[in-house]
């Protein structure tokens, strides 16, 4: 088990860095999605199924959706200007 936790921790660090380093906001949303998924897996490995469930619904569904809608709305504003 310990290698799994270690690997997931490193993956989390990587996914977080990817979110920061993807400068294009549209691409960043996908990175955020992946980050949420990795975090959820890590939480499962840390024996926290409750937290993992809430991270999966929030981190991989709701938050990216909000980001997408916000970006779309911003694009529509721009087109209107």
């Amino acid at each position: 088990m310990s290698w799994l936790v270690g690997a997931l921790l490193e993956l989390t660090a990587l996914a977080g860095s990817l979110v920061v380093l993807s400068r294009d906001p549209r691409r960043q949303v996908y990175a955020l999605c992946a980050n949420g998924l990795v975090l959820a897996l890590l939480f499962f490995a840390l024996q926290a199924p409750d937290v993992a469930l809430s991270e999966i619904t929030i981190g991989t569904v709701v938050t990216p959706l909000l980001f997408f809608v916000a970006l779309a709305a911003a694009a529509m504003n721009k087109a209107r200007r």
Partner: peptide, 14 residues
Amino acid sequence: TPGGGFQGGVIVAS
């Protein structure tokens, strides 16, 4: 079991 008002609520809303 795992889950509850917070997680379930978000799922229903989505």
